[in-house]
Design a protein around this nucleic acid. Structure first.
Lengths: 212, 212
DNA sequence: GGGGGCCTCCCTCTTAGGAGGGAGGAGGGC
DNA sequence: GCCCTCCTCCCTCCTAAGAGGGAGGCCCCC
């Protein structure tokens, strides 16, 4: 704390539903001379309201959170302030998550197993509005490019497929005919390049299209 | 730090592949007057060797770690020292993981979203050889009771099923006939109480029988 | 007004998958 | 010795699932 008054500290909000992780990040951040944690959120809604309230330089966001999903938080926060600087920090490295967040306007994306130094330099980069993405994550985002996206209806069907439902059952639940359900399943198989519905589920899971 | 010399501190080893989580736990633990972190491991092998080296009062273990899986670490450590006090701390709440760890002899199991106080009291409990299990986790363990377990071969088949392989493909990979593969799949379906292979995968995943 | 997605529904045809049996050999525990 | 579990293989029968088409209505955007 010697030459403190030269620069303003980077004001950080942490949003993660694990107290342990928040503690860890807070400890790391507050040890740095050039940054400080101004608030901590334990769920998506809290993250949004704390962001509005504090207008931090950087918000570090976990993707899977109670109440409101990470992607939804990204969307909402950027709606409130399009210049918000968001750093996604999560365990999920599916290309869909990464692609969604980055294309929606998050400035950085890193994985929770990243070493301390990488996390800190990511925060600094994002605070200066420079994008930060580790090479492995960037590779995933590029992988996702060019791949066809599923329509909302297809995602609805996919979720039921992943639960192990039959086409007939899916049709009943969505109030469509079995034939239509088959049509959707078929185009899911084509888009995901899978030969069977079970493989489609495996692929979708790996890509982060479905959770659980 | 007033009345320190009355008791020895609880010596804790942390094993988790996320530096952030280790930092968070370390910060929490070292703030307590009655405990201290003596070592940190970032993977399974390291956890085992550090345990041997330090013989801590408690080892806090993540389940999914590089090199050696959490359950395997539990097994090996208890082989080395049957009186080892292990506290599992993970994000996975599948009944299989919980059941495996506890029945193998882990003293406690808690989820990473647990509040600080719960984590600390769990460490204290386990250090005194008292089992600690949160009620939701205990409920899962009981759920698992009575359910049939899969044989090794069935697990082999299940993994391939989860990858979306056909029976024919599975047979080829395991060097058995398609008929035998079918037999295994059939008994998997029966044991998991599923009607289709895709549902079996969903159930298996929920229970923590398969990863990814 | 004319695309272009998207959702819906329809057709035929083939096969992989699941139901329900039985049965033999290997290995371990009692 | 016996029993039991597991893995292996066999049979039949039937349905769900996937391949490969086509087609109409809707809505939004250019």
């Amino acid at each position: 704390m010697v030459a403190v008054l030269t620069k303003k500290k980077i004001r950080v909000i942490l949003a993660d539903d694990h107290p342990v992780v928040r503690d860890g990040l807070a400890a790391m951040v507050n040890q740095q001379a050039d940054m400080e944690v101004v608030a901590e959120a334990g769920d998506g809604d809290e993250a949004i309201s704390l962001f509005e309230q504090h207008q931090p330089d950087v918000m570090v966001l976990d993707l899977r959170m109670p109440k409101r999903d990470g992607v939804a938080v990204v969307q909402r926060v950027l709606e409130i302030n399009p210049k918000a600087r968001l750093l996604i920090m999560t365990t999920y490295d599916g290309d869909e998550d990464i692609f969604q967040c980055l294309s929606q306007g998050a400035k950085g994306y890193l994985l929770k197993d990243a070493p301390r130094q990488e996390i800190l330099s990511a925060i600094r980069a994002v605070s200066e509005d420079r994008p930060y993405t580790s090479s492995s994550v960037a590779a995933k985002a590029l992988q996702r490019m060019g791949k066809p996206s599923l329509t909302q209806r297809e995602l609805d069907v996919l979720e039921l497929v992943a639960q192990g439902r039959s086409n007939k059952d899916i049709a009943r639940r969505l109030s469509i005919t079995e034939g239509t359900a088959k049509t959707h399943v078929k185009s899911i198989l084509t888009k995901l390049d899978a030969i069977s519905r079970t493989e489609a589920v495996a692929v979708a899971h790996k890509r982060g299209l479905i959770r659980l």
